[in-house]
Amino acid sequence: MVHFLQKHTNWKIKVPTLPGHGESLSLKGISYNQWIEHAEEELENLLDTCETVFVVGFSMGGLIASYLAVHYPIKKLILLSAAAFYVHPKQLTIDIIEMVKDSFKGKLKENELFIRYRRKMKETPVAAALQFRKLVASIKPLLGRVTIPTMIAQGEIDGVVPPRSALYLYEKIAAPQKRLIFLKESKHLICHSNERERLFHEIVDFLK
């Protein structure tokens, strides 16, 4: 998405890496407040240099972005696969069946979802999962205070964040101007889906 924005706009773009995240995960001992504080620091730097600031949040970052929208003078908010709820059992079952099929074919290590799930399970300590739940619980009550224009995008076959999460956000966010988009063939990593071009155009149109 960043490459798309760089091609179609002249905006200054920052992509902060939250504590414990990155190429390899190191989440042990990290609290959810550290994630919020880091996002606040990055945003404050942008607000010091930019007249207009938009915030885009993906997955857990969608909740953090919503928090920022309540406490800072952001102009518009984009929420992608935002995790107000976590795990979509029905879709997760479908994904697991596909992994089992690939396993029988000897292609499991080529299965993109398997690679991502395995990494997440190996590198995410239980304590970090609990911190995520605390973050969600602390920010959900604030959603009614989000009043800036908001766009919510959600993949319909997301096995990590269920579509009801997007519906919940759309209902709870108090912004008079808000938009909800479902992408039929997209899983959790919505910016890497086959429908990403459509999504990126929708985002730029909404922000402009």
Rank of each mutant, 00 (worst) to 15 (best):
167 L>I: 12
81 S>L: 03
57 G>N: 03
72 Y>A: 03
129 A>G: 13
136 V>F: 07
22 G>A: 05
94 I>Q: 15
104 F>W: 14
21 H>Y: 13
161 V>T: 07
90 K>Y: 14
104 F>Q: 10
78 I>E: 02
12 K>A: 13
180 L>D: 01
16 P>F: 01
21 H>A: 05
33 N>W: 11
92 L>W: 12
105 K>D: 15
143 L>V: 08
172 K>S: 08
134 K>E: 11
114 F>S: 04
54 F>P: 00
208 K>A: 08
152 I>F: 04
111 N>W: 06
2 V>Y: 04
132 F>P: 02
172 K>I: 06
74 I>V: 14
10 N>I: 06
125 P>T: 08
121 M>E: 12
30 I>D: 06
58 F>A: 09
88 H>F: 12
32 Y>R: 08
151 M>W: 02
47 L>I: 11
37 E>K: 12
149 P>K: 01
84 A>P: 00
145 R>E: 14
180 L>Q: 03
169 L>V: 06
134 K>P: 05
67 Y>K: 09
31 S>W: 03
49 T>V: 11
65 A>M: 05
46 L>H: 01
106 G>R: 08
48 D>M: 11
68 L>N: 03
4 F>N: 04
196 R>S: 10
70 V>Q: 03
131 Q>K: 08
34 Q>P: 09
131 Q>S: 10
153 A>T: 09
91 Q>V: 13
141 P>E: 11
90 K>M: 11
66 S>P: 00
151 M>N: 03
21 H>L: 10
73 P>H: 05
73 P>E: 08
134 K>H: 10
28 K>G: 07
44 E>Q: 13
108 L>D: 10
70 V>C: 08
15 V>L: 09
117 Y>S: 09
56 V>H: 01
4 F>L: 11
31 S>V: 13
158 D>L: 09
175 A>G: 05
70 V>N: 04
1 M>W: 04
164 R>F: 11
106 G>M: 11
92 L>H: 12
179 R>V: 03
12 K>C: 11
74 I>G: 00
185 E>D: 15
41 E>P: 00
183 L>W: 00
96 I>G: 07
18 L>A: 08
151 M>D: 01
87 V>N: 13
96 I>N: 09
200 F>T: 00
195 E>N: 06
188 H>Y: 04
79 L>D: 00
22 G>M: 09
30 I>V: 14
173 I>A: 02
154 Q>A: 12
55 V>A: 06
9 T>C: 12
184 K>E: 15
108 L>Y: 12
120 K>V: 06
167 L>D: 06
79 L>S: 00
165 S>W: 01
109 K>S: 10
111 N>M: 06
109 K>L: 13
32 Y>M: 12
